[in-house]
């Protein structure tokens, strides 16, 4: 049994608990986790219960990175070696907590920040976040007569993290479990701030059958819409190559949040394909 217990109340087929158990497998028992508000917090710690097998603390939505910075500093003063992690959603990471995250990177705290990226505020009812991809329909970017859904591209937080000059930035997807464990282990061996963003499909918000979570987590990578790579000290050091890149339609058509694109917004699919092509070129994914 892992360090994340059964009986949590995440939706059936949720990608997030898969990511969490793999992160804890990589980090091990000697860890302290901070989680901001989000799906993970509400589904793992419904008072008076907790799913966590390691010490865990809930911060505010906006200050998980600051709370982790404080824990790391206190442990340093006490001379204790413990892995300090944040595991937070994309809303808390790329929007609400980005100031605290930037501060943590700037001050150089020895913390591993994990963002489970389900591409919207799922806990509160699928409101768009900075991480919501172009063309997706969310409750605050609804597709309709006058809108094709989210009209801005997904915010590139890994690039923003790397721009802080931190030693390790990586992306991963729950479709590739060993890769997640490996990257977390690697991050724990590096001293300084680390940032790992893991794509965790959300059956409720993306509107697909919960059994297809892993399939979608792989398709996002195989279409180059979610490139998987590592950046060490500002340099791209490793990318997950794609043997035969799939057209973005294969990924989009399985999800209700992109359904409208196939009806009268086909030109938007071409825009999304261009984004995938540009990712493939930027990271050298084909091959």
């Amino acid at each position: 049994m892992s360090l994340f217990a059964q009986g949590h109340t995440a939706c059936a087929g949720c990608g997030m608990p898969i990511a969490v158990k793999l992160v804890l497998e990589g980090s091990g028992e000697n860890s302290i986790v901070v989680s901001p508000t989000g799906c993970l917090e509400v589904t793992s710690t419904r008072y008076p219960q907790s799913a966590w097998g390691v010490p865990w603390i809930h911060s505010l939505f906006e200050n998980a990175a600051a709370v982790a910075s404080g824990i790391e500093t206190a442990l340093k003063v006490k001379g204790k070696k413990v892995n300090v992690l944040v595991i937070g959603g994309d809303g808390a990471t790329v929007d609400i907590g980005v100031r605290a995250l930037s501060g943590m990177f700037e001050r150089g705290h020895n913390v591993t920040y994990i963002c489970y990226d389900n591409e919207a505020y799922m806990n509160t009812g699928v409101q768009r976040s900075g991480s919501t991809p172009y063309g997706a329909s969310a409750t605050t970017s609804p597709a309709g007569k006058l809108s094709f859904g989210e009209d801005r591209p997904k915010k590139d937080i890994p690039a923003i993290a790397a721009a802080h000059g931190i030693p390790y930035v990586a992306t991963a997807s729950v479709g590739y479990p060993k890769d997640i464990v490996k990257k977390v282990k690697k991050a724990q061996e590096i001293v300084g701030p680390k940032y790992i963003q893991i794509l965790t499909p959300c059956p409720t918000g993306w509107r697909f059958d919960g059994s297809k979570t892993i399939k979608l987590a792989k398709l996002a990578v195989e279409t180059a819409l979610f490139p998987v790579y590592e950046i060490e000290n500002g340099e791209i050091t490793k990318v997950k190559k794609i043997k035969e890149r799939k057209p973005v339609e294969e990924y989009l058509k399985l999800q209700g949040r992109f359904k409208h694109l196939f009806k009268k917004n086909k030109d938007r699919i071409e825009v999304i394909q261009k984004m995938a092509d540009s990712n493939a070129e930027k990271f050298g994914l084909d091959g």
Binding site: A5, Q6, G7, T9, A12, Y47, P48, Q49, S50, G53
Partner: peptide, 17 residues
């Protein structure tokens, strides 16, 4: 609001199935 670890096991989520 401290609670004990791994106490969610009282939730028999199999009933959702």
């Amino acid at each position: 609001g401290i609670v004990k670890p791994k106490t969610t096991v009282v939730n028999k989520t199999g009933a959702w199935r």
